[in-house]
Simulated scan of single mutants.
Amino acid sequence: MAADLGDLTAFAAVARAGGFRDAARQTGGSASGLSEAVRRLEQKLGVRLLNRTTRSVVPTEAGARLLDRLGPALGEVEAALDVVNGFRDRPAGTLRLNVPVSAARLVLPRIVPPFLAAYPDIRLEVIAEDSFVDVLAAGCDAGIRYGERLEQDMIAIPIGPRRQSFAVAAAPAYLDRHGRPTHPRDLLNHACLRGQFSSGAMTTWEFERDGEVVKVDPTGPLLVRVGAATDLAVDAAIAGTGIIQLFEDWLRPHLDSGALEPVLEPWWQHFSGPFLYYPGRRHVPAPLRAFIDFTRSFGVWA
């Protein structure tokens, strides 16, 4: 009852992605091709592996058992095939990264273009989101996270700037109308533009000066999903709608142009930069190894 390896791989991709379309996007195939592969596998095994509805695709009990045993086996197959990659003049294959939107905007633009130019046989897929998913479960090779978000049993190497800040700013016209805060608690009397994670948690506005830490929970007329709609909040701040808190590097162009004015700058909180992290107990694919080495060549950013 030997099953085709391609059909098994297709089943695993669909089961992990939770749907044929998402799996097709992740694998570069087609939804119809994946559907046909799963159908062949189910027919050969004589058991249904996936429960399909109009909204989702979920493994049956048999499918879940198969996926549990199949995952490590497929990983070993990929590792075995990737060994051959080491004999190529240039690494080839697909590298999948799961990163926060801030990293996609502030870190990767400096690295990705020269990396792809140096390794033209590597295809890079970047999934940018702020839900902090399990990178392996999401079918990714590595991720970018900040120190407090790193998972256990992962290898982490610095990537991007090693020192970052959360800046607070507003349009000069807004501050002329409503006054300039001199202490973080003054923000409670201002219109503040807030962010919310996909989990529903609100971003915390935290400040620090001379060892004093102050946390405030201001309110305002605009609430945006972190990452996906952050630029909307920036545009609203420039238009004079209220005060925004965001990565300093994100706001820096508008601070330099004068469109936004720094607020409470002595209180801005500094923190360490992000890390590239990946599993430490499994074979490192050649595309990921190339990316790790290339990232290290950038050294430590100021």
Results as ranks from 00 to 15, higher is better:
Leu187Thr: 02
Pro72Phe: 02
Ser32Val: 04
Leu260Asn: 12
His270Asp: 14
Ala286Ser: 02
Ile238Val: 15
Asp210Met: 01
Phe271Thr: 11
Arg177Val: 02
Gly29Phe: 02
Val224Asn: 11
Ala37Thr: 03
Ala80Val: 01
Gly18Asn: 12
Leu8Asp: 09
Val57His: 05
Pro72Ile: 02
Leu95Gln: 00
Pro274Ser: 15
Phe132Met: 10
Leu223Asp: 08
Ala23Met: 08
Ala191Met: 02
Val38Thr: 09
Ala12Ser: 10
Asp89Val: 01
Arg282Ala: 10
Pro120Ile: 05
Ala13His: 05
Leu288Asn: 00
Arg48Asn: 11
Ala31Pro: 00
Phe294Lys: 05
Asp153Asn: 05
Trp268Gly: 10
Arg252Pro: 12
Pro266Glu: 11
Pro120Asp: 04
Ile157Met: 02
Gly93Arg: 03
Glu148Gln: 08
Ser32Lys: 13
Ser32Trp: 09
Val216Ile: 05
Ala167Arg: 03
Thr203Leu: 13
Ala103His: 11
Thr295Leu: 08
Trp268Leu: 11
Ala142Glu: 05
Phe247Leu: 15
Asp153Gly: 07
Leu81Gly: 04
Asp7Asn: 11
Thr94Trp: 04
Leu41Phe: 06
Phe166Pro: 04
Met154His: 07
His254Thr: 08
Thr241Ile: 10
Leu260Thr: 08
Leu188Asp: 06
Gly280Ala: 06
Ala12Arg: 05
Asn85Phe: 00
Thr60Val: 06
Gln269His: 12
Arg52Gly: 03
Arg48Phe: 07
Ala229Leu: 10
Val214His: 09
Leu74Trp: 04
Leu187Asp: 02
Gly240Trp: 10
Tyr119Met: 02
Asp141Cys: 03
Arg282Asn: 06
Glu261Gln: 14
Ala128Ile: 07
Thr230Asn: 15
Phe87Asp: 02
Pro285Arg: 02
Thr54Trp: 12
Ala236Thr: 10
Arg282Gly: 08
Ala17Phe: 03
Arg52Phe: 06
Arg296Asp: 07
Ala156Ile: 07
Val224Thr: 14
Ala80Cys: 00
Ala104Pro: 15
Phe207Glu: 08
Gly179Glu: 06
Leu222Asn: 09
